[in-house]
Design a protein around this nucleic acid. Structure first.
Lengths: 220, 220
DNA sequence: AGATTTGTTTTACATTCGTACAACAGCAGA
DNA sequence: TCTGCTGTTGTACGAATGTAAAACAAATCT
């Protein structure tokens, strides 16, 4: 019996390989079928190695969730951060980014839902979720405020927070259904639907946000 | 070794007992830990009986998802169906019902998320999800149209559909975050936030929907 | 009351799971 | 090239899993 050849990778590289293999397995096998052996195989590694990087398989799955949320919030914070953008264009970009790849993704929403299902069961998941939610809420609030000011709308903190909560709900809900791709409507209409709805929620004049839609398409 | 005493229940009763036990186990153990033995114990029954009612444990879990969605859409269709309600009040009630028990529920959202996580993996889950989503979308569209007409807003089918999609997204997103109870804000403010946002999305005058809020509270 | 049906329990089994641990091998430094 | 370290593999083991099938008993019928 000849032993399998292997190469030693840096700790970080091996770790992220395992985390990404975990996410891949959870996404297309489900949490219950995503066993240690299958994750290891997907990472091109033997099962015993998991315990060399994580205290247990459950801890690895938790770490994978944190890893995923870190990626997603980082992507959200990057969007609309281009300099020389008007407040309106920046807000429109943050919103619209959720309805195009890579954010709009069946894999991502599957993972997100699977992990959210554990929030009530496991406090560690609840912490990760709360953190990600809070960060996105803060980001939205920061992008909403200058728009309201520029448009001469009331922009007190309480109103901004409520609007951010509502806008976040809109984005989350549309993102989920859009990413699942149930085929009940054309997902390419989502950016326009979302921006028009956001204009309404924020009580902005028509086309304040939607006029930045074509720009989005051209740049991609 | 004395055998356990038991009583024979009607087929339907035993079946729903098993389905509800399945949901309970999935909600507070997670899909992977919700084993056949634990579900059976929660239903007050021995594990072997499962196979007398379902071809497999997986089929039982699928049936439990369908059962859950049936309950939820039935509850949604009941809300706002009271006679002699104005179109505006009926729409407000449908929206607000999602932000008070029993709809606003950590258990429900955990189950919902867990099952949505399987939509990509298992076509049966995708079918159930699509059906539930479509029904709620249709319900919203039916409640939106008369309001738009009464308020003299444009109400062509395409616009109604887009508005229903946006409104459904808003409700879904707020329902999820509200039900998870992360404590980032007071969930009791959700009905007001949701109704105000809905007014904006539909381009209705202020208080068209929110003025029905106090009524909601009084009737509970 | 006795016979029949069938819903229910029990036992058994192959499989898979997460994990522990000893043996091995790739790589860095001498 | 040899040595030492440790990342990595392979194997083994107990526990838990889903399922099959036989034994049993509760309700129903006669």
């Amino acid at each position: 019996m000849t032993r399998r050849a292997f190469s030693r990778l840096s700790q970080d590289r091996r770790r992220t390989d395992l985390l990404e293999a975990t996410l891949a397995c959870v996404a297309d096998l489900g949490l219950d079928r995503a066993g240690a052996r299958q994750i290891a195989e997907r990472a091109g590694v033997s099962a015993g190695l998991i315990r060399h990087y994580f205290p247990s398989k459950d801890e690895m799955v938790r770490a994978a969730y944190a890893y995923l949320m870190g990626q997603m919030t980082a992507a959200a914070e990057d969007s609309g951060a281009g300099d020389a953008l008007s407040p309106e264009a920046a807000l429109a970009e943050v919103i619209a980014a959720n309805f195009a790849p890579p954010s709009l993704s069946g894999v991502k929403v599957s993972l997100w839902a699977t992990f959210v299902g554990r929030v009530r069961v496991d406090p560690a998941y609840a912490d990760i979720h709360r953190e990600g939610y809070r960060e996105f809420l803060d980001l939205l609030e920061a992008r909403i405020h200058p728009v309201l000011v520029a448009q001469g709308c009331p922009a007190d903190p309480a109103r901004c927070k409520h609007l951010a909560i509502a806008l976040n709900g809109l984005i989350d809900g549309l993102w989920i259904e859009g990413s699942l791709g149930h085929g009940l409507y054309d997902a390419r209409r989502l950016p326009a639907i979302a921006l028009a709805a956001a204009e309404g929620i924020l009580r902005l004049p028509d086309t304040t946000l939607t006029r930045h839609l074509a720009l989005e398409d051209e740049r991609s």
